[in-house]
């Protein structure tokens, strides 16, 4: 997995609440058997009209906005557990998603793919959504080591929480499988003890 330490980038603002994973990547694109190329279908039904033409009103189709940070409304990533949602966001180029609330499974999936979910207060989210919309060039800095998100040339700065273990994983670019494989002996011991307990009952 790619390392993540800090990032400074422009951002894209998507002020929609309850963005579910069916919107992030519709089910009809889940037929692939590898992880690549999902970016093309990110937010497909919002990016394109029913007749296949580009929906000019959708923010990803607006040339003024770009960047590696997506700022979205409350309860981002709810619904289906499809990790394809995280793959699509990452493949499209997003490294950080900012929201005031994330659905559990999505949060885990994002972290497992080097995409950092940054949970901020509803007030800070409002400021970000508004400022970025009005000033597309404004840079946002996300520093994982300090656990801080800052809006450049302003006083707007907020601390965010992240599980210590996950933070170490991201900073060093290693993942859960590596860790679990290193614990196999302990896992086998657990299995044996359980078996013994059952038989001796």
């Amino acid at each position: 997995m790619e390392k993540f330490i800090s990032l400074k980038s422009q951002a894209v603002s998507l002020p929609v609440e309850n963005v579910d994973t069916d919107q992030i990547i519709p089910a009809r694109f889940l037929k692939a058997t590898n992880r690549e190329g999902f970016g093309e279908h990110l937010f497909k039904d919002w990016r394109y009209n029913k007749d296949g033409s580009v929906n000019k009103d959708f923010v990803l189709n607006d040339d003024r906005y770009s960047g590696k940070i997506l700022i979205a409304g409350h309860n981002f990533g709810c619904g289906s557990s499809r990790e394809h949602a995280a793959w699509a966001l990452s493949d499209y180029g997003f490294k950080v998603i900012v929201s005031s609330f994330f659905a559990d499974i999505f949060k885990g999936n994002a972290l497992n793919n080097g995409v950092l979910p940054v949970q901020v207060s509803p007030e800070f989210l409002e400021v970000l959504l508004h400022t970025v919309k009005k000033q597309p060039k404004r840079l946002i800095e996300v520093n994982l080591e300090d656990q801080c998100i800052t809006m450049e040339s302003s006083d707007h700065k907020e601390h965010f929480e992240i599980d210590n273990y996950k933070k170490t994983c991201l900073i060093n670019g290693y993942d859960d499988i590596d860790f679990l494989l290193s614990k196999r002996a302990e896992i086998e011991l657990f299995e044996n003890q359980r078996e013994l307990a059952r038989v001796s009952d």
Binding site: S81, R82, E83, H84, A86, I105, G108, N109, N112, N113, D175, D176, I177, L180, L181, K183, R184, I187
Partner: peptide, 11 residues
């Protein structure tokens, strides 16, 4: 998620 499916496969 699928990364976790891989974790369970592995361990």
């Amino acid at each position: 998620g699928t990364s976790q499916v891989a974790q369970v496969f592995a361990s």
